[in-house]
Amino acid sequence: MSVMQQGLVLMVTGIAVVFAFLIILIIITKFLSVVVQKYFPEKAVQIKPTSPVVQLSGSTPGSTGRGSEPATGAQIGAGAQIAAAIAAAAAYSKR
């Protein structure tokens, strides 16, 4: 076999194997995604009710007074700060 023939054989096998490998990978990835999404869905992340919307607009002032969450006051402070920062950013971007 001449060198060029060897090169051609290498090219054909090479391309074929690369494509075969990645096509197999596509099938496996799709299969795993279906399985994971069906049987092991990711639980929605629970957002604790400390977001400024809940705390500031909520008309239940008693809710913070339960004392079950000692950090609530600080969280409200942080939430309010974030809300203020978002409002400032929104105002800035509208200029």
Binding site: L22, I23, L25, I26, S33
Partner: peptide, 8 residues
Amino acid sequence: PRTLILGA
């Protein structure tokens, strides 16, 4: 996943 084929 089909973009894998572009890598090939």
